[in-house]
Write a protein that binds this DNA or RNA. Structure first.
Lengths: 226, 226
DNA sequence: AATAATTGTAGCATATCGGTGATAATATTG
DNA sequence: CAATATTATCACCGATATGCTACAATTATT
């Protein structure tokens, strides 16, 4: 899958960091064009086609939401907002996000990358069913796709179900018994150690994102964003 | 299920967006009445019955927590706070939530909708335990997460149980024997000094919030809000 | 039916936790 | 201030929980 992104961001440093990261991580399959202000961004949108636009809410001269509306009047392209937490909360939450999404600063590049991939996939698909995202992992309950660090992952059924349950309850400490109840059902009378086993395989399958599954001794497991 | 909601929020736009969303989504089964300031809200509460109140913490003239206390003096109705993240965190933590909950901006309308439904269900049903808060410490009996000064804390089982017991009885002086009974059970015949040991580790784990556990000489321990 | 993939079991290695006792530090009492 | 009682802290080792591996049993696929 190849995609073209437009990044509208006034801070030179951030622009560069994001561009570099995406170039390296996607190995060229994602191409980023950068604009430093709204006008430049609008011009690029008219002359080029993009699959996704990353938009800083705080831009000089024009704010991201206004720019977004202008973009929408020309093209129907998904927008991912970059926003600082306090200052733009109110506007953001009054804004009808539609099929868009937002990410609040500070954020990790990996997180941004994961979210972008999720949005791209969502946009290319049919329905805009919300995708579960937790740190570097995404799980789509409709398409049943799982990605870790932007890459597609194949999971065995049990592994998938465990991950899905955890993704629905991020940061919850989930006991082995709970998992046995929810996934195996009431008619399973084996040892809870079986959960360990599948969790182990799940961690492996997730690669470096496997560390997001934390063990909480004597309690169970917990899926975290890091 | 049909429910009446009161929304107290000064921003016209937000009020409208929320009202519209709930009307559309619930297909009329949830009726929202909106108030733009605290006084109007109080009047409505006296004249009407509501199943849930959504309260912006930042209101002109009066803050949400104060308003909430006044509401409580009249009616025992669950309250959902809307709060921006950084600015109101401290107050929120110090506030005894009771059967209430809060949601931080920015949030999606779907998220708010889900939370409201959860609260309504909880209120109509029996009980679902809310998060315990004491000073800078929070403990969620459902997710088993513990935070101190806003940061997630990892606790060993015994430490967790001791803290949980104390959080359920803030400001009580709890004897070592009581803790031994409640946590170790009747089949423990060692020395009560063991409690000291775990309390020590607990204090360490809590970092600067560890000072909230006070020793009451010859009596036991006490968890305070400072 | 044969093969492959997945699931469940068992056991050992390893990390973490819990309890003990001694000693230091602190508070209380006379 | 000295004597006493109470609590804090530490290091140690046994107990417990988890990670990991290999293999058997089951199920799905061809």
């Amino acid at each position: 899958m190849s995609a073209r992104l437009l990044l509208v961001e006034d801070d030179d440093q951030i622009r560069e960091v994001i561009s570099d990261y995406f170039n390296a991580k996607s190995e060229g399959s994602i191409k980023i064009t950068a604009a430093s202000d709204g006008d430049e961004g609008l011009n690029l949108i008219q002359s080029d086609d993009f699959d996704l636009i990353i938009l800083d809410v705080m831009l000089p001269h024009i704010d991201g939401f206004t720019l977004c509306r202008r973009i929408r009047s020309k093209k129907d392209v998904p927008v991912l907002f970059l926003t600082a937490r306090t200052s733009e909360d109110d506007k953001l939450y009054g804004y009808e996000l539609g099929c868009d999404d937002y990410i609040t600063k500070p954020f990790s590049l990996a997180e941004l990358y994961a979210k972008v991939n999720a949005l791209l996939k969502r946009a290319s698909g049919t329905v805009s069913k919300p995708e579960l995202v937790c740190g570097n992992i995404t799980l789509n309950p409709v398409t049943l796709n799982v990605t870790a660090c932007g890459k597609d992952i194949e999971l065995a059924p049990k592994e998938f179900e465990i991950l899905a349950y955890m993704m629905k309850h991020p940061n919850w400490v989930i006991s082995r018994d709970t998992l046995l109840d929810m996934i195996w059902g009431n008619d399973f009378y084996g040892s809870p150690r079986i959960v360990d086993n599948h969790v182990k395989k799940l961690r492996c399958a997730l690669g470096s994102a496997g560390t997001q599954i934390k063990t909480v001794i004597s309690k169970g497991y917990k899926l975290t964003e890091e």
